[in-house]
Amino acid sequence: MTTEIQSKNTQIQKYVDLLKNPEKGPKKKRALARLITFIENGGPEAAKEIIPQLYPLTGKAHIIGITGAPGSGKSTLTSEISNHYLEQGLTVSVIAVDPTSPFTGGAILGDRIRMKKNFTNPNFFIRSMANRGQLGGLAMATKDVIHIIDAYGSDIIIVETVGVGQSEIDIFKSAHTTLVITPPGLGDEIQAIKAGLMEITDIFVVNKMDRDGADKRVAELETMLDFGENIQIENDYSQAKVVRCDGWRPPVIKTNGLTGENVPILLENIHRHFIFLEETGFKKKRLQFRYKHYIIEILKYFLVKNVEEIVFSNEKINEFIEKLLAYEQGSDPYTISEAILEVFLNRYFS
């Protein structure tokens, strides 16, 4: 077992070294892909070996989140957006997340088909990922993967998901700019936006603008935004406060992903948003927020792991457990847990 881990770590080291090499090429791309696989399969244990080495190379990419229901045309639009950046000579990477079947645990990942135009371009990288259920730590894995791609030297990173469930919405806490795509004609979708996506959206895109109802959809969104502007968000801990920054009203843009119509306007707005974040200092605020979340997730993982290990194998814990069995005032599971937590926190923060 240990030799297996050792050999895995040797492999990881080989690919990390390749990735650090400033020269681009198929080998570096493969190293990127291999490292992503290690993260996908090994989770934080693998990330712990990789991220610390690559972290100094990160912080350069513009991260764009794109979400929309199946059929909204988000993959085609992602492909169009990528084209434009590639034409400017930038390096573009896409993480395309598709749902895992809750019944079989399998998934079909079909986003490459729409990226066909680009995927042999040396400046383009696309990776398909299954969300592996909502419990699979997708958001955390995605954050790790974004960091690796950032270190690889991608100017633009696009994360694309159907945006179902909290775990997928959490992904967008990693993005600088989040696009929510809503084509006309899907009746109940406005409700879905109200329910969760409204507060993380920086730009609304009404794709498939050639269809009936596109203008109506734009009007609906504008009305919703008029209404939303007056809402005071109380909870300081909420994502909304950080994302719904003063002075930025999410623009609503009509596009046609198939023909590329209006995609330049969309890109302008993405750029405008990026400048806005920089100039107003919101970028830093968001980064702080993002890393808090990242840290919370990492802490959760390692604390749980450590706590489990300690509770089950450390002799000292038995003293606390003994107290429980006395069934006395102050020896209940909550008080005891609090006491244990006290010990932990003292160890780490005092």
Binding site: S75, T76, I108, G110, I113, R114, K116, K117
Partner: peptide
């Protein structure tokens, strides 16, 4: 014709 009319790409379906 490819130049003038463009080419068609299929979306995946399952």
């Amino acid at each position: 014709f490819r130049d003038v009319f463009g080419v068609y790409r299929e979306e995946s379906i399952f």
